[in-house]
Amino acid sequence: MQRKLFQLPKAPLFVSFLLGVLFGAIGINFLYGHKLDSLYLERNALYYQTNQKQKEINNLTEELNKLAKKKSDQNSDRILKVQVEVENDLRFAQEEVKSEVEKIVEPFIGKSSQWISNNPDLLDTLLQERTIEIRNSNSNTGAIQIQLQLKYIAFLDSTLKIWVTAQERAPNELTLE
C-alpha cells in the first residue's frame, strides 16, 4: 500500500517528463531542422568529394607505380655494373687484373645488354690476346706482363659478368714482339 502511494504521484510526473522530452525534441526539430538538413547535405557533399579525391589518389598511385615499373624495366635492360672474374695461377695479381679489365670494359657501362648479347664478339675483340702490365711487389722484375683471353660472359639483371683467363707472358715472348 505504501509503495502504491509512493508510485502514484511519480508516474504522471515521469509520463509528463517523457512527453516533455518528445515535445521538446519536436520543437528543436522545428527550430533547427533546416540547419540540420543543410549540414547533412554539406556532409554528404563532403563525403562525395572525399571519395572522388580518394579515387584520384588511387589512380595517381597506380599511375606512379606503372611509371616506376616502366623505368625499372628500362634500367634493367642497361648494363650498370661490370663484374670480372679472373682465372689464373697468379696469387697476388688477381685484384690488379680485375681492375685493369674493368677499366677496359668500362665503355660498355650504360649500354643495352641486348646489344652486347647480340654482339659478344665486340668484347672478345677488345680482350683477345690483350696484354696488360701489372706492377707486382712479389715479383723480382717489378712489373709483369699478362695476356688476357675472354672466356665467358653472362648477364645478371643489370650486371655484366665476365670471366677472363689471364696468363703471365714469358720475358722472351716479350722480346719477340
Binding site: 518528445l22 525534441a25 519536436i26 526539430n29 531542422g33 540540420l36 538538413d37 547533412y40
Partner: peptide
C-alpha cells in the same frame, strides 16, 4: 511525421527530409 523526424535525427539522417 513529427516523431519520425526526431527518430530520423537520432538515426543520423536529415530530419526535415525524413518528415
Amino acid at each position: 511525421s513529427l516523431l519520425g523526424g526526431v527518430g530520423a535525427f537520432l538515426a543520423d539522417r536529415a530530419p526535415m527530409d525524413a518528415m
